[in-house]
Design a protein around this nucleic acid. Structure first.
Length: 486
RNA sequence: GGCCCUAUGGUCAAGUGGUCUAAGACGCCGCCCUCUCACGGCGGAAACAGGGGUUCGAGUCCCCUUAGGGCUACCA
């Protein structure tokens, strides 16, 4: 059987977009499931739109999501180089071959001329298609003009009439009528290959067996199929993934909030949750399972079951998933990922992160069950690291303004003073005894105490907090609250 | 405008001619658990875009309309 080889071919014009991430992910699943190769190719032929750090950003995001590639930047491979800008010889060679065979020709039309032609056709209500003005220029003449320094592009000569049928694994067969197409450009005047051409040449040269990419490329596929034919290449299998849309059904853009993997990371989302979410956006294991591991997906993934309709991403569900992973994942993993956020936000210092690792782990473990993101962990555990400087207003109104709370807290403080072994159990015992003695409801003292210890009305179990805070700090904060109330 | 793709609740989706008076999840609402919040449990509101066919029978097949998206660049 032929080896399965798939590729993800981002263009380095910015961060890794979640749509791109999902495309990469599906390619990766497919490769891993079939024990094939996942190759990464950088399509950097648009010199205008190149962004400096883009490649490393994309690689970083992919790694963070847990993907690895068998060939591509950083790892190399026998089909390299993996940057299109370094494969110019090949494109040139293949383009020239087409020119020699009469399947392509030089075109000397300028951008202005083309624009004029376009406007003209628009006026008469026609679709724009290149007139083919230069198609009759003989190769000799073209070469002469080239030698004189004239700029030219190379256009593909549409070989036939009729239609092109594209076989797509997700959409079955799609037909395109050839009279929609014109003699499109395969080599730009700056010597760079145009997308459709470079893509075909590379997919062939890299022995790609399955082209799995976004739906926006479906309409380009007939051109590519024609190119495969003209170049004498074997056709790969195609699979076009539907797009991911913004909540208003428009194309995802910056104004829709986070759209890049990096942004989600910065907002405190876990890679596992994002991967899970993206996986289910367009693919379903079939049943009612929502939490799927990467291993399971590799096992069960089926291209033919990828949904055909565009999906709108919903951060609410992502957030829910994140909460799920936050509590179920190994605590060490969570701690290691939370630490940078804590340091960055000044809750702890880098030194503390290593010195108090054990202590911090306990705190995060206590807090993680009730928050949804890593950023929220930081916020929810702040009072373990910093002194209380204010009390939530709502809490003050509800608990601190009741007559006699200060005395109540004082009694609580006393009870705690006598606790030797400051554990969850012992502190709770002390408080329960007091509650019985005073014949009050637990909440009557628990709530104000929580506010005193944390400054907030929401927290983990009170006695967990006491144990974590330790006797000294508890007593001090109780005193501080009593003073505040007075 | 032309061509192409798509169309099940607000969102993701199961469903591949009869078992659909349509699953599950997120979100929303109510209740329970409870020291708060979260988790968890229970319950609820909420969908086959519209119209024609085909068929004994259609969410499932075909056509049209509508809507959304994509392509239509010397962007990828």
């Amino acid at each position: 059987m032929k080896e399965i080889r798939v590729r993800f071919a981002p263009s380095p014009t910015g961060y890794l977009h979640i749509g791109g991430a999902r495309t990469a992910l599906f390619n990766w699943y497919f490769a891993r499931q079939n024990k094939g190769k996942f190759v990464l190719r950088i399509e950097d032929t648009d010199t205008e739109r190149l962004k400096e750090d883009s490649v490393s950003q994309i690689l970083t995001s992919m790694k963070w999501l847990g993907m690895d590639w068998d060939e591509g930047p950083e790892v190399g491979g026998e089909y390299g180089p993996y940057y299109q800008s370094q494969r110019m010889e090949l494109y040139k060679k293949e383009a020239l071959r087409l020119v020699q065979e009469g399947k392509a020709y030089y075109c000397f039309c300028t951008a202005e001329e083309l624009q004029a032609e376009r406007d003209q056709q628009k006026k008469t209500g026609k679709n724009f298609r290149y007139s083919g003005k230069c198609s009759s220029i003989s190769l000799e003449e073209a070469q002469k003009r080239l030698a004189q320094g004239e700029k030219a592009v190379i256009r593909f000569r549409l070989p036939r009439k009729g239609e092109v049928k594209v076989k797509d694994l997700i959409r079955k067969q799609v037909s395109f009528s050839l009279d929609q197409l014109d003699d499109f450009i395969i080599m730009k005047s700056n010597g760079m290959p145009a997308y459709n051409f470079a893509c075909v040449v590379d997919d062939n040269a890299m022995a790609i067996s399955h082209v799995i990419r976004a739906e926006e490329h479906l309409s380009n596929t007939p051109k590519q199929v024609l190119l495969y034919e003209a170049l004498g290449y074997n056709l790969p299998e195609f699979a076009h993934l539907s797009m991911i849309l913004a909540p208003d059904r428009s194309k995802l853009s910056k104004r829709h909030g986070a759209t890049s993997v990096e942004e989600f990371r910065e907002q405190g989302y876990l890679a596992s949750a994002l991967v899970n979410y993206l996986t289910l956006l367009g693919w379903s294991p079939g049943g009612d399972q929502e939490l799927v591991s990467v291993e399971e997906t590799i096992q069960n993934f089926e291209l033919t079951k990828v949904s055909k309709n565009a999906a709108i991403y919903d951060t609410k569900k992502l957030t829910w998933m994140n909460g799920q992973y936050l509590t179920s994942e190994n605590i060490r993993e969570i701690v290691d990922q939370t630490l940078p956020f804590m340091v960055e936000r000044g809750v702890i210092t880098g030194q503390q992160a290593t010195d108090d690792y054990g202590e911090i782990t306990k705190i995060i473990d206590a807090v993680r069950e009730r928050v949804k993101t890593l950023v929220e962990i930081v916020d929810a555990s702040e009072y373990f690291f910093k002194e209380i400087t204010s009390y939530q207003e709502k809490g003050v109104r509800k608990y601190f303004s009741k007559p006699g709370v200060d005395e109540l807290l004082e009694k609580g403080r006393k009870a705690l003073t006598e606790v030797e072994d400051f554990t969850v159990e012992e502190t709770e015992n002390a408080y329960r005894r007091l509650i019985d003695e005073l014949e009050i409801k637990g909440g009557a003292i628990i709530h104000p105490t929580r506010l005193a210890l944390t400054g907030r009305t929401v927290s983990p179990g009170l006695f967990d907090i006491m144990a974590l805070l330790g006797k000294e700090r508890c007593l001090k904060r109780l005193n501080q609250a009593i003073e505040y109330i007075k």
